[in-house]
Amino acid sequence: MNRSAQTRNRAFVITGLGIALLVAVLLSPFASSDPDGLDRVAQDHGFDTKATEDAPAQRLPFYNIFEEYALRGAPEGIATPIAGLIGTLVTFGLAWGAGKLFVKGRSSDTTLSDRDYPDQLPR
């Protein structure tokens, strides 16, 4: 990979992560309230007898930090944006790490995958 391609790729990653963080931090307070807070909404409406009250995830240490998408102990206005910020960064890091762990090919070209370009690389 040449230097300018590297710079362009870095710019794309920074832009992409920046957009994701902006969405998570700035838009999350405006998200329509409901459906995905499934357990709580279902309990509120009383028709959700089948959802496990004491879900296994509530026994994880993270439950002491986050109550769904809200940082515990944070003021109401910023609890969700902070959770979004942390969640987005963690997801970014874990997906990058998973890629690092499993992707074996060295980028001697600029394609994501060599499946469509068998002429370029000897396996």
């Binding site: 990979m1 790729n9 794309f12 994701a20 970014f92 997906a95 890629g99 060295r106 980028s107 499946r115």
Partner: peptide
């Protein structure tokens, strides 16, 4: 099949 160039993209896409 994948090249290491895909790794940062995986992070961005997931985020």
């Amino acid at each position: 099949d994948y090249q290491e160039r895909a790794v940062p993209l995986m992070g961005v896409c997931a985020a």
